[in-house]
Amino acid sequence: MIAIRDLGKRFGRSEVLRSIDLGIRRGRVTAIVGPNAAGKTTLLKMILGLTRPDRGELLFDGVRVNGDPAYRSRIGYMPQSPRFPDHLTGNELIALMTDLRAPTTSTLDRELIDQFGLARELDKPLRTLSGGTRQKVNAVLAFLFDPELLILDEPTAGLDPVASGVLKSKIARSRAAGKTFILTSHIMSELEELADDVAFLLEGRVQFVGALHDLKLHTREFTLERAVASIMTSMEAA
């Protein structure tokens, strides 16, 4: 679904992405993992066109991403713990997004609202909601328009175990229905539960990409966490 070739980006003196080559396959959950400041969020933002690459190319269904916003109607994005406008209520935010996206189908996916038990919270100003509740609203917005591709940046951060479970089963169901996911997380057990493919980012490059069990074979480690740690140690030794 997405092909990335030799993607590079620098911010001032720091070269965030050196050379990224990566393919995202349709109908699969691809996890981008890596230490802090490895460029995970930058990569997600580039796929969305929020950040422009200095070098290389990024193809969405074979078409180069170059400022035409139409392809984004096929994407749902869940940014990392965003700050929403202070005075708006959740329902108003949902109405605004619906108004702006003008979806072709009239049915919105409001399933998560019920499952999170959010209905009453959506009448309150977003500023008065707790961080976890705002993250639930964030998740609702990403799934609302039934997009083909969902880009989730740290989706379960700030969610309690129950809500986190709700979101994870939603991801699993949507994947079974043929949706594609790109997500980042620091919780390895969670990625192990959800991800089909793993792309491991370190120092602006993809150090490993492939199916989760290949990564484990590759490093002869049993869990993802240990596999990642083993790659990082071998990088430092080199």
């Binding site: 929020l50 965003p82 700050r83 929403f84 202070d86 996206r101």
Partner: peptide, 15 residues
């Protein structure tokens, strides 16, 4: 203050 919200808007199919 709108920074995060602008990011959300930019992720939509809008110019």
């Amino acid at each position: 203050a709108r920074r995060d919200f602008i990011e959300l808007l930019l992720a939509q199919p809008l110019r």
